Simulated assay, not measured.
Amino acid sequence: MTELFGVEMTPQAEDDLERLFEFLVVRSETLEELDHAQHELHQLRTSIKKRLAENPWAYRKAGDGRRTTRRELIVGLGSTGYVALYEILPGREIRVLAVRHQREEDYH
């Protein structure tokens, strides 16, 4: 079994997840939709951590591509998706820098 990477969410990434959750809550009109919003953000967080812990080098380079340790993970959930910007650090550590909805312009 291969050794997993440690995954840390920065305060900015945590703020992004909260902002995304609040957006979903505002759009919720029923308790079922509110439950769905909670479930979607839980799935997003879980997917980011699991996929990056297993193989962070598998995802696309971010920016101009010269900095190979900064990358983006696309997480599809239903008919939409999210993008997590992260950096691979020495010592098998991953730092998630930001998370945005795929339809947003860019990271905040």
Rank of each mutant, 00 (worst) to 15 (best):
E3Q: 15
F5L: 08
F5S: 11
G6W: 05
V7E: 07
V7W: 08
E8N: 13
E8F: 15
M9K: 07
T10V: 02
T10I: 04
T10W: 01
Q12S: 14
Q12A: 15
Q12I: 06
A13N: 07
A13C: 09
E14V: 13
D15C: 02
D15R: 15
D16S: 02
E18I: 05
R19I: 01
R19P: 01
L20R: 01
L20D: 00
F21P: 09
F21N: 02
F21M: 12
E22A: 10
F23C: 10
F23R: 14
V25I: 06
V26A: 13
V26L: 11
R27I: 04
R27L: 03
S28I: 03
S28T: 01
S28L: 06
S28E: 02
S28R: 04
E29C: 09
L31A: 14
L31F: 03
L31K: 13
E32K: 13
E32V: 15
E32S: 12
E33G: 00
E33F: 07
E33D: 10
E33M: 13
L34M: 14
L34D: 03
D35K: 13
H36G: 03
A37P: 01
A37K: 05
A37N: 03
Q38W: 08
Q38Y: 12
H39A: 11
H39W: 09
H39F: 03
E40C: 00
E40W: 00
L41V: 06
L41T: 01
L41C: 01
H42F: 08
L44K: 01
L44G: 02
L44E: 02
L44H: 04
R45T: 12
R45V: 01
T46F: 11
T46E: 15
S47M: 09
S47E: 10
S47W: 00
I48W: 03
K49L: 09
K49Y: 04
K50D: 13
K50N: 09
R51H: 10
L52A: 00
E54T: 07
N55W: 01
N55I: 00
P56W: 03
P56N: 07
W57C: 04
Y59G: 07
R60M: 11
K61G: 00
A62T: 04
A62V: 04
G63S: 10
D64T: 11
R66A: 09
R66E: 10
R66Q: 11
R66F: 08
R66T: 06
R67Y: 13
T69A: 12
T69K: 05
L73H: 09
G76H: 15
G76P: 12
T80Y: 10
G81W: 04
V83E: 12
A84I: 06
L85I: 07
L85H: 02
L85P: 07
Y86P: 09
E87L: 05
L89I: 03
P90A: 14
R92T: 07
R92Q: 14
R92L: 14
R92D: 09
E93I: 13
R95W: 12
R95N: 05
V96E: 01
V99Y: 02
R100S: 00
H101N: 03
H101F: 08
H101E: 03
Q102V: 12
R103P: 00
E104V: 09
Y107M: 05
Y107S: 06
Y107H: 04
